[in-house]
Design a protein around this nucleic acid. Structure first.
Lengths: 339, 339
DNA sequence: TTGTATGCGTTATCAC
DNA sequence: GTGATAACGCATACAA
């Protein structure tokens, strides 16, 4: 049996409540007894029981992490560790800890969220994705449980606190950078079409084309399924068509790796035959061959702000919903080339 | 205020204890009242408070994850998400959840562990690394707190439960595969020399050389600092020496990417000029150029077994320490070549 | 088969 | 300033 507040109280000759006050550094306790109590704590090797404290406080000082079904491949994307690192930093600064709960299917995830919320396991939740018609988002909102989403909410944008990039502009910038390099046949390879971010970026891409007077080709719009065979086929089809694009805007660095690989197999070289710009600027993009020109969306900061602002929200529940936009910037490397 | 067991009891006209028993599906409760109580739970939207349950049970059904200082770069390695995914699966199967606690410095990590253990936040801990002279390992062992380490413990190997690959053999196999391809000048690029795994692999490498009658060159032994400038210098020095190696055994796929990049800058091609075999067989190694020949250490399974066996240990505290060895296998791709 | 009483380790509300 | 005492929500030994 572990040493409790009572043991400390006994040894220091005070009441348990006094010990509790000393722990909280309550100013109404005299320095003298504080010292005595602290000595007793040290002597006994006392550590507060977080669970008991949580129960009494009705607060766990923990935040829950929810990610889209950690199905095999997606989770190998370096995006996740990096954003978790950011969240962790934000949480750690405010002395919050992190609880993860994942399932495989969408069903399981939802279950896990309910478990966290209703079970009072966490004080708030960060949603690491934003999917169209997400039941989790609906549930959390309806419960008025503190949460923040990384990415733009698919709905109720004004009422939900979120941290995101300006993905529309980021995609527009990326496309324009290609246009400036003389490209006119530019294709768009988005991620999961059910994610809000994919739509934003598609718009940015289309508007960039339109503003400069280039027409948008339906065949130039694709959705990569992240390292699937479908992707391979789609690329092959695209490059066996009469009018293959000279440049690609790709949703994700890892996807870009994969596409470069497919292209190589087709005998096409990057950047000589086709230019590629992708998103995320993951560490790997620097050391790949060729090094990737990538839109740095500042993943770490995305996570950091998510953690920080979620806690802010937990501690000030009635402040209005906020929107935090993290700046992006294009990092030029070797995968794009003047035409 | 949330709905508690008492509310349910009142509605169902039973005592709170009865409700508790229904939740636990205690066989001594009649089907009739079970149905009635369950209906009441449904009507009120009751969910048990996990925290309160934990306090009463003296068990949280949560396991803690501890990783080596999540200092910037290391954590971007796809190794981590993958092993966490495995742990998660193992935990989920037994209805355990996962608590993460990271600091930046070694100090902070230790603090976090103490917090988890003494604060009774978790029932067990998985250590995602094994460092020489690790105070965390010592602390946990001395406390007799249930834990499992991924990798070989640096000490008390018989008394600590761990899951690992046979890194000695894996490294030996890798080296021999190079030898079989006709290479005689083979260098070893290890990871952090403070990690136990690095030492195991160095031994395997040396023994492979020795058994075949090749002499071990001190200059052929290096420690990559994971994407640091030091690495670049070391490689450059190695390849400007009189006797550069024709093949490399590299501790990690991501490190291999980086080295390939450096090599390319030096005008050297993989695999034509130098062959590379690395460890981990991360998803990316398949889609890189060239695709990497890599030792698959089955990261997911490493995590899965870690989670599963930790829980096993939590629930049967007096079983003897176990050692779980996950098989490895070499996946031949395009980064190695006959000489 | 079910109810009563008590404990889990804290914090918080009153007293004094 | 400090000490009793009652929550917090649930589980369980003991009664009935």
């Amino acid at each position: 049996m572990a040493v409790t507040i009572k043991d400390v109280a006994r040894l220091a000759n005070v009441a348990p409540s006094t010990v509790s006050r000393v722990i909280a550094n309550n100013p109404r306790i005299s320095e003298k007894t504080k010292i005595r109590v602290r000595q007793a704590m040290k002597d006994l090797g006392y550590h507060p029981n977080i669970i008991a404290r949580s129960l009494a406080n009705q607060s766990t000082r923990a935040i829950g992490l929810v990610m889209s079904s950690a199905t095999d491949k997606v989770f190998q994307n370096p995006f996740f560790p990096e954003i978790i690192r950011g969240i962790n930093r934000g949480a750690h600064e405010k002395k919050y800890s992190i609880h993860m709960s994942t399932g495989q299917m969408e069903e399981e995830i939802f279950e896990a969220v309910i478990q966290m919320v209703e079970g009072r396991l966490v004080d708030g939740i960060v949603l690491l994705y934003s999917r169209i018609d997400d039941p989790v988002q609906n549930y959390l909102k309806q419960k008025m449980f503190p949460f923040i989403v990384v990415g733009k909410p698919y709905k109720y944008e004004q009422q939900i606190t979120y941290v995101d990039n300006d993905n529309y502009s980021a995609s527009k910038d990326a496309t324009e950078s290609l246009i400036k390099k003389g490209h006119e046949k530019i294709a768009f390879v988005g991620g999961d079409p059910n994610f809000v971010v994919t739509d934003d970026r598609l718009q940015g891409y289309r508007d960039a084309l339109e503003e400069i007077g280039l027409t948008f080709h339906k065949e130039y719009q694709m959705y990569g399924e992240y390292l699937s065979d479908g992707e391979q086929e789609a690329i092959e089809r695209l490059y066996s068509s009469v009018n293959p694009p000279t440049a690609l805007v790709v949703a994700d660095d890892v996807m870009a790796f994969s596409i470069i690989n497919i292209l190589n197999q087709l005998g096409l070289r990057v950047p000589d035959d086709v230019s590629i710009i992708s998103f995320n600027n993951v560490l790997l993009s620097e050391i790949s061959s060729p090094p990737l020109t990538s839109v740095d969306i500042n993943i770490f900061r995305l996570g950091y702000e998510a953690g920080k602002n979620l806690i802010q929200r937990i501690e000030n529940p009635d402040e209005p919903a906020k929107r935090i936009i993290i700046p992006h910037k294009i990092v030029e490397r070797k995968s794009c080339r003047q035409r």
